[in-house]
Amino acid sequence: MKKYILITASLILGVFLVSACSKSQSNEKKKVAVVISTLNNPWFVILAESAAENARKLGYEAKIFDSQNSPAVESDNFENLISSEFDAILFNPTDADGSVSNVLRAKAAGIPVFCMDREINNDDAATSQILSDNYSGCVEVGIEFVKALKEKGTYVEILGLVGDNNTWARSKGFHSVVDKFSNLKMVAQQSGDFDRNKAMEVLETIMQAHPNIDAVFCGNDAMALGAYQALQAAGKANVKVFGFDGASEVIEKIKEGKIVATGMQYPKIMAKTAAQYADEYLKGKRDFPQRVPVEVELVNTANAKNYK
């Protein structure tokens, strides 16, 4: 009898332990990784924090990984998060070509990747890519540029990171307009790596060879602010500066008439959409559009009051 009671008690205890264990497993939050090209730029900090915040709101544990603009660091980040068994990745790549292998590794490990803002050159690696419509945005900046310069003058273009598709989408959109006006001459085109200080240094150097420029087009607002600083220091407040991003500091400068125009991007919308897509994927959805463009709006002196 005692033996039977002991066996029954053991069985009940066993069932209890198994059920408790499975309960604790189902209560464990799924993990979403937010891998960002750099956190050394306020725009990407907003993108990263919004993505993580949206993932948390949807009930996931979220962790931000900084790739420090280095494909090697990005690769290490992917290795870590694959071995740590993250369930989804919200990804802002460092390089359109170089980041493809990382996305493919995650895909092979069964982890869906949702690209934010920056495109990778593969339409079968990421589950979906939510991207700013950089080209259209810079077409509008280009038209504003031609009008502001009254179709003539010399200018400098400061590009972003050369390995990033956004750099070229912006440059191509801008040049698709400006190059049709033969009296607008580009005297220098150099990379400022999307970095404020580097853009400032690049423009200072360019101005030694070309002191009489009329305008500067920058691939992002951080560089536009760097260019503005360089122009201020050189006493060239009349040179027209154009940016891209919609940073609040630049919006203020547009209101003050110090910067001419920028393209307003929506990092929070991209981050929210990526987090929503990841949530839908983890709940079973599999059919996602490969590329989702997010509208960019032109901000100039006429409409800057509508933006913060």
């Binding site: 495109e119 339409d123 080209y135 077409v139 280009g142 598709n165 070229w168 698709s176 559009p289 463009p293």
Partner: peptide
């Protein structure tokens, strides 16, 4: 006459028809 306005207004070209945004 620049940008994607005419292409997109036509509704005749899909993003998925091309491998890259470029």
């Amino acid at each position: 006459i620049f940008g994607n306005a005419i292409r997109d207004a036509s509704g005749l070209v899909k993003l998925t028809d091309f491998k890259t945004t470029a």
